[in-house]
Amino acid sequence: MGKKILIADDEEDVKVVVQLFLESKGYDIVTAYDGLDAMDRAREENPDLIILDVMMPIIDGFEVCKKLKEDPGLKDIPVVMLSASSHAESKQRGIEVGAVEYIVKPFDPEKLQAVIESILK
């Protein structure tokens, strides 16, 4: 059984392509379609790693990450942020709310895989 990764992205296509890629690399994938759903799924599935899109409806990725880090049961799950914003402040904010890595779209899936592997090692 591979490690379990939660992907939260409101962009259906981005979610699908990351899911297909990571599944092909042997990971077990669960998905969420917005920030609130991501919180629920994280509690239900207790994943080994969470990939969070920044721009999501209801609550954005930064907020989700902050809430995860405040939750004693979830705070140890490493978070990788995906964002269409390459602004330095945005990256800074991602690190501040507790993300391990901040990746800008469009990204090289193999690099994402390398990041995930190094975190889960």
Binding site: V17, S24, A84, P106, P109
Partner: peptide, 21 residues
């Protein structure tokens, strides 16, 4: 250009390793 073009590009970029597989 810097923001909205990134998402569809990310999807297209993401399909390349899948095609190889």
């Amino acid at each position: 250009i810097s923001h909205e073009l990134r998402t569809p590009l990310a999807v297209i970029r993401g399909t390349l390793p899948l095609m190889q597989t």
